[in-house]
Design a binder for these strands. Structure first.
Length: 539
RNA sequence: GGGGGCGUAGCUCAGUCGGUAGAGCAGUGGACUUUUAAUCCAUUGGUCGGGGGUUCGAGUCCCUCCGCCCCUACCA
């Protein structure tokens, strides 16, 4: 074992190791035999592969080629070495790092292709003549998937490919696990989710999606900050799971010996901050809901929730529209798309045009052909569609709940998925915690944004009368079944906060995972969550 | 919860009517100093997801369990 080695491996029983891993261990030993530690050290001044390609200098490359040719010709003509014309080499040099994705060994010349997060493939040539001896040996013994650093001048090959003509190659890390097939890549969905560390390097699209996700979240923060919002962090561990109607996860805190819930929404804490005097606040963080998983639901999901004191539903709709347009701009730039029409599956969604706004009642009547106030027609339609008209215990649903069943079955799917659309003016009884419209108390000042057939997030004018809030809380609690009442109780402190006085406000929440799905053109939430929830593997 | 599909070499996949388990890539040995999925010669590699059954014989048929995917239902 090499004296350079700083990490000494525990011996592993070789009969338990797959023969392909054993072979890779043997190649690692061969590198050690060269006196090189296969697990390298800190390396400064690395250039990203995309930047390395941009640094190529055609004129310098040509000048170098001419001077090499001239010296070769002079040697052939018998010119003594001391009288040869000077070697001209102003080619830019780079030091690069990446995973080996292709390896072509031509004997005394080895071709490698490296990949990093900025480029799928960048070619490196390792020649016995021009590279140092250890580096050449490393290149010969490299396996696909190893992490290498290479250094040398940028040149263009006969075939026209910009290449680093290495004079040094150093191993940085060994890939002992055989990588996916070099061309087809990793296609097994389960492996992609379970071993995201492989998927990320082996599937360039995966790296692109998560890079884009990061850019979008960053752009969102910059946008909101520039609008005068401040970012806050409120409890994820809550003694009561409020702010939404969803089944929470339960945990226990030993120090205080109390049960705690993982939050289902930050809403009630953010509103407390408005009471405290923060005017514009937002939080980007995880919510947890103990419910089913499907293409649009992961048990933990990221939401931006935002409150604007002295605003209302319409003012936060306006913020959302400008925010999403800005994010579409970032996504378009990142994906190399001109304009603000972004593909999502078969759809082309136009983020540049003003978002549609339609009242709930108008959308209902437009799609059903009769007004939602025509309860006989509504019940008839619900029956015809085979919709639920009573609850689990057989108690008939209120008219408005049946209206909503019909609405969700017929009107909601009729929203043009290619046009971001706010549905506004919901029936008040559907949104008990929303402030009623000032002109018509049967209507709640709530707007839901739909894009690409998905519900992206609600917008509200917030209730700020503590007595009404308390009455609605109590009304809601009275209607709970046994299971729900175990995790939902009266939030007296929130009512106390409202008694201190919360300014009128608009609030909204956007599902960031769904937004990233739309802007990164991914059909399932699992493809925009790095480590989606999976059943544990058995040992 | 209900229905459907899938699971074969490290990876990507074939496998006919139930009759000795296959290919490409990767790997290994060899040749090669401008390759591009390099090429050429030789070659290793399998508990066919696990268990049980039917059969002279099971990757293939049946039962069961595990995992994943899709549809559907539930879900602020």
């Amino acid at each position: 074992m090499s004296e350079h080695d700083t990490q000494t491996a525990e011996p592993t029983p070789s009969d338990e190791i797959h023969h392909l891993e054993q072979q890779r261990r043997a190649n690692r030993d061969a590198v050690r035999a060269l006196g090189v530690d296969p697990y390298g050290q800190r390396t400064d001044e690395l250039v990203a592969l995309a930047d390395a390609r941009a640094r190529y200098d055609e004129a310098a490359d040509l000048a170098n080629q001419e001077s090499v040719a001239a010296r070769k010709q002079a040697t052939k003509d018998g010119t003594p070495d001391s009288d040869l014309p000077p070697l001209v080499d102003d080619r830019p040099r780079v030091r690069i790092a990446g995973r080996v994705v292709l390896h072509r060994d031509n004997g005394k010349l080895v071709w490698l292709n490296l990949r990093d997060a900025t480029s799928e493939s960048f070619q490196v040539a390792v020649s016995k003549r021009d590279c140092d001896e250890a580096g050449f040996g490393v290149a010969k013994k490299t396996d696909l998937g190893d992490v290498l650093v290479a250094e040398g001048p940028l040149m263009r090959t006969k075939a026209g490919e910009v290449t680093v003509w290495a004079d040094a190659v150093r191993p940085m890390s060994k890939c002992l696990v055989p990588p996916p097939e070099k061309r087809a890549g990793l296609s097994d969905i389960e492996t992609r989710y379970r071993q995201r560390y492989v998927d990320l390097w082996a599937t360039p699209d995966t790296m692109r999606v998560f890079t884009l996700r990061s850019r979008l979240v960053g752009a969102m923060r910059r946008f909101l900050d520039s609008e005068g919002f401040i970012e806050v962090e409120t409890p994820m561990l809550q003694t009561q799971a409020g702010g939404a109607a969803a089944r929470p996860f339960l945990t226990h805190m030993n120090a205080l010996d109390i049960d705690l819930f993982l939050r289902i929404a930050p809403e009630l804490y953010l509103k407390r901050l408005l009471v405290g005097g923060m005017r514009k606040v937002y939080e980007v963080n995880r919510n947890f809901r103990n419910e089913g998983l499907d293409k649009q639901h992961n048990p933990e999901f990221t939401v931006v929730e935002l409150y604007e004191a002295f605003g209302d539903m319409a003012s936060v709709c306006d913020i959302t529209e400008r925010l999403i347009r800005e994010l579409a701009r970032v996504a378009a730039a990142e994906r190399g798309i001109e304009g603000l029409v972004l593909p999502f599956g078969d759809l082309s969604i136009d983020y540049g045009a003003p978002f549609e706004r339609i009242r709930y009642a108008d959308l209902f009547e437009r799609e059903l052909g009769f007004p939602m106030t025509d309860t006989d027609a509504v019940r008839e339609k619900a029956a015809a569609l085979g919709l639920k008209t009573s609850d689990d215990k057989g108690v008939p649903l209120d008219d408005v709940l049946i209206v909503n069943e019909v609405f969700e079955a017929v009107a909601e799917p009729a929203i043009d998925p290619a046009k971001p659309t706010f549905v506004t003016h919901y029936p008040a009884s559907l949104s008990p915690l929303t402030r009623p419209n000032i002109d018509d108390p049967s209507i709640a000042d709530r707007a839901d944004l739909f894009i690409g057939g998905m519900e992206v997030g609600p917008h509200y004018t917030e209730l700020n009368d503590p007595d009404i809030q308390e009455a609605k809380f109590r009304e809601q609690l009275a209607g709970l079944d046994d299971e729900e009442s175990t995790f939902r109780n009266f939030d007296a402190d929130f009512v106390r906060a409202l008694k201190v006085g919360m300014p009128p406000a608009g609030g909204m929440g956007l599902g960031i995972d769904r937004l990233v799905m739309l802007l990164a053109d991914q059909r399932t939430i699992r493809d925009v969550v790095l480590f989606p929830q999976m059943r544990p593997e058995q040992a």
